[in-house]
Design a protein around this nucleic acid. Structure first.
Length: 105
DNA sequence: AACATGACATAAG
DNA sequence: CCTTATGCCATGT
């Protein structure tokens, strides 16, 4: 069985350390192709609960959570990240300090 | 099997 | 900053 894009993406997301966040594009890039950003979104959307996938550590390139901090799910994601020590500002995570590794520069 | 949709990113205007 | 277009995979109808 060859690994599918989803498997690679899930594997990458699982490697995100606690207290850090990664952007969809970053996950896609680490998974193999940076154009999988969309696939990453769908993958997280299809993440079965209890899979051990820290989907809440994945945010948009701007650091905004899914749907926006105003969304019910976004609010939950924000709370989860905050519980790990990630501070939020204006509904966005401070990527400069909390982005996993750091792509670019 | 074909078409439309989706938790995005990037480039171009 | 916003809109439009393109790229990619899986799922639902």
């Amino acid at each position: 069985m060859e690994k599918s894009a989803f498997d690679l993406i899930y594997d990458t997301v699982r490697q995100i350390p606690e207290g850090k966040v990664a952007s969809y594009g970053q996950i896609a890039e680490l998974a193999g192709n940076r154009r999988w950003a969309r696939v990453v979104g769908y993958a997280l959307h299809a993440v079965p609960e209890g899979s051990g996938i820290p989907w809440h550590r994945v945010v948009k390139k701007d650091g905004e959570v899914f749907g926006g901090a105003d969304s019910p799910g976004g609010k939950r994601q924000t709370e989860l990240l905050r519980g790990e020590g990630v501070k939020f500002t204006d509904g966005r995570v401070d990527m400069k300090k909390y982005q996993w590794g750091r792509r670019r520069f």
